[in-house]
Design a protein around this nucleic acid. Structure first.
Ligand SMILES: [Zn+2]
Ligand SMILES: [Zn+2]
Length: 134
DNA sequence: TTTCAAGGTGACC
DNA sequence: GGTCACCTTGAAA
């Protein structure tokens, strides 16, 4: 029986938002941008690896592989680069294991704004030199 | 209470 | 070993 409030008005319009990294279906905002679970997990592992002091797999090319992201498992370096380029923030990755922790409003859209602030791909210019010794 | 997203965890490749 | 997908956690609205 579904006379009234059972399954009726629960978000019928699910607009499929695409992941800004791999163009997959986003499950929502993650690390500042719309990302799929794959990118979320990948970014988490990547950032965590950096925190451990281990450099990520360097790309054999100049970090300019023809990665189309239809096939994500190409170059992790390039994938990670695209993640950062898309606007994913390492700061959003908690150094602790504190779950939840909604830090201020996720700003919904920050992509273009972020790009302007960070001047596009300058993360490469800075990051390359100093992988960081945190 | 409900929502939203970050984290863990685990199954699949 | 890495990737993908789901569940839990945990604070903010
Ligand atoms: Zn993605
Ligand atoms: Zn590459």
């Amino acid at each position: 029986m579904l006379t009234d409030n059972d399954v009726c008005c629960q978000a019928p319009s699910q607009v499929a938002v695409l992941c800004l990294v791999c163009r997959d279906i986003s499950s929502g905002l993650h690390y500042g941008i719309h990302t799929c679970e794959s990118c979320k997990a990948f970014f988490k592992r990547s950032v965590r690896r950096e925190n451990q002091g281990q450099a990520p797999s360097a790309c054999r090319s100049s970090g300019d592989c023809p990665v189309t992201w239809q096939r994500k498992t190409g170059c992790q370096a390039c994938r990670f680069a695209k993640c950062l380029a898309a606007g994913m923030r390492r700061e959003a990755v908690r150094p602790d294991q504190t779950r939840g922790g909604r830090r201020s409003a996720p700003t919904s859209s920050s992509y273009d704004e972020r790009m302007k602030q960070f001047d596009g791909l300058d993360f490469f210019n800075r990051g390359r030199e100093n992988v960081d010794t945190v």
